[in-house]
Design a protein around this nucleic acid. Structure first.
Lengths: 228, 228
DNA sequence: TCCCGGCATGTTGTGTACAACCTCGGCCAA
DNA sequence: TTGGCCGAGGTTGTACACAACATGCCGGGA
């Protein structure tokens, strides 16, 4: 047996501590950003611990990180509350996100491989499906997936981590505002963005792709603040 | 007694939980960045708990945040180790820091008040004192203080938080490299930076101050990587 | 009727014991 | 001599009990 030598953590059923942490963190962050936990929701540590079959300790570890990132706020004796995004924070984060999106094209972009172009075409297909039958939650999910895809185009790890952090910090206000927006127009605009990004990648021009993304972040913010 | 009405948390001796957390976090981050804990040091939770007179629980909360920020790495069964900064991470972070430093001048800069100008002059004095008698640790401390000062010039909270995070992520490599650098020249260059920033603030031109800072980050990185 | 003080209840913060895990040294056998 | 096994010691991860704290209700007094 030359392969499965000393490998105590290789059992598929058992997850390591860090793996469990990542799972739980991603799950809770997703629920917050998809408004399964709208702002103001009280996240009881005991309730979460019971749901996930662990004690309060690992749950608290995850909530502490979410608190550091500003997604929740723990108040002694009250509860851990999902925060709301105020206009000022929204403005600051979007202004910075625009700049970072552009920088992703110039700060050590990754070479555009055939696999990446194929993935981009998949996103084009998904966006067309979305335009045909718009749905807020599908929209938000596709948006997150496409954002993660964009992160992988960036060779600067610090820039990628920062962009991700900022994205999830305000991602939920879009779902909060969508009832007052034109969903079909939003979907069309998003599909355009994806098509243009795919075209730029086909032309092996990551810088152009980054500029497209910056432009659409800007326009999305405009629609968000003027029509809500 | 119209002033001290219902204020249970106003007692000066007792610190709230969040206050204690901030204190401990700042203390440990400072020790790491000032190389009191050089890379590779094992930070025993029990030892820290004993030193600060608390249990392992709040210590673990602080170490978890330091771990999220990449300053330490917790290994099950081994210990919590102070991480080292590798060349790749250093390059990425510095490239991003340069851009962010420039953005601080254009993305909603704060108005330059008389108090700020006075503070800048104080930094000029301190830098001259440092040039007269250079000392690595004093240098690093002044650098941190001046950085914190620069953060307060930025009206964009997201940009300020991001810049701070990135700064402390790689701040320690400077102290690690200084034995192989010309300390006097580093001090002179830093004093020039402070003077130029103060001049730009006197001229009510935060954008120029930001450009100066970007230029000095770039030069500092060049000296760091070429002569070490 | 209104105000206010105290208590019951539920929540997060802390302390502590134990489980899971890694490292290192000694010991035995080839 | 050398290779590997294995057990002791020490560390982080987890579970749980209790302390600290905030909130809302209820009852009494003005």
């Amino acid at each position: 047996m030359p392969d499965d030598a000393r490998r105590p953590a290789a059992e598929p059923g058992r997850l390591s501590a860090e793996e469990r942490f990542r799972k739980l963190y991603a799950e809770l962050r997703g629920r917050i950003c998809l408004l399964d936990y709208p702002p103001g929701t009280k996240l009881g540590e005991e309730a979460l611990a019971a749901e996930f079959g662990v004690s309060r300790t690992p749950v608290r570890r995850v909530l502490a990180r979410l608190s550091d990132e500003g997604l929740v706020e723990a108040r002694h004796g009250v509860g851990t509350i999902v925060t709301d995004v105020d206009a000022r924070e929204l403005s600051d984060v979007y202004a910075l996100r625009m700049e970072l999106a552009q920088l992703a094209g110039t700060l050590s972009p990754r070479p555009v491989t055939a696999a990446i172009r194929a993935e981009a075409r998949d996103f084009v297909d998904r966006s067309e499906t979305l335009v045909a039958r718009p749905d807020p939650r599908d929209f938000a999910t596709l948006n997150m997936d496409f954002f993660d895809f964009g992160l992988r185009l960036c060779g600067n790890a610090a820039l990628a981590e920062t962009s991700e952090r900022l994205y999830y910090q305000t991602a939920r206000i879009w779902l909060q505002t969508i009832p007052r927006l034109d969903l079909r127009r939003e979907a069309t605009s998003f599909a355009q963005e994806i098509r243009q990004v795919a075209a730029a990648l086909d032309a092996d021009d990551p810088s152009a792709a980054a500029l497209v993304r910056r432009a659409h972040i800007s326009m999305s913010y405009r629609r968000l603040t003027t029509e809500a």
